[in-house]
């Protein structure tokens, strides 16, 4: 598992804060793996562990095949529309896929549905504007 060329998954990515932080993010903590930081290229994966799966439940949105990738897994995230890319390390569990089933982010009519990745601001801002909130991505490893 590395920042490489093998297709892993595709869907919608959002961003979140973690680690020591300002404002309401201050209580977010270091995430499920304990070392998540907003200013590092980190991410949250919905199947980071069995306990994580119980929280995110992507299977309820038809994303039951998302493979297990635990703390420290490395992925390459490519934005659907611009093709800009960033390499991230999984340090947390998320997003809460089950609460947003069917939500889509499209590019030129091609849509990626369901939230399957949360990125830190550092990582997300390299592939999209933080003010966009969510974006379609392809994930490789």
């Amino acid at each position: 598992m590395a920042c490489s060329t093998n297709y892993l998954w595709r869907g919608e990515a959002t961003w979140f804060c973690c680690g020591a932080a300002w404002g309401p993010c201050g209580s977010a903590g270091g995430g499920a793996c304990g070392n998540c930081r907003s200013a590092s290229n980190h991410g949250a994966w919905p199947n980071a562990s069995a306990a994580c799966w119980d929280i995110t439940r992507p299977d309820l949105c038809g994303e039951g095949g998302i493979p297990r990738r635990g703390c420290g897994s490395v992925m390459r995230v490519v934005q659907e529309c611009s093709k800009s890319a960033v390499c991230i390390t999984i340090t947390d569990c998320g997003p809460r896929t089950k609460s947003f089933c069917g939500e889509a982010a499209c590019c030129n009519g091609v849509c990626r549905t369901n939230r399957i990745l949360d990125l830190t601001p550092a990582a997300y801002s390299q592939i999209a504007s933080l003010s966009s909130g969510k974006t379609g991505v392809w994930i490789y490893e």
């Binding site: 290229n41 490519v78 611009s82 093709k83 800009s84 890319a85 390390t89 390299q126």
Partner: peptide, 11 residues
């Protein structure tokens, strides 16, 4: 020839 990845990547 293709849409570019302007922002590059980091780790």
């Amino acid at each position: 020839e293709r849409p570019g990845a302007l922002l590059g990547e980091g780790v």
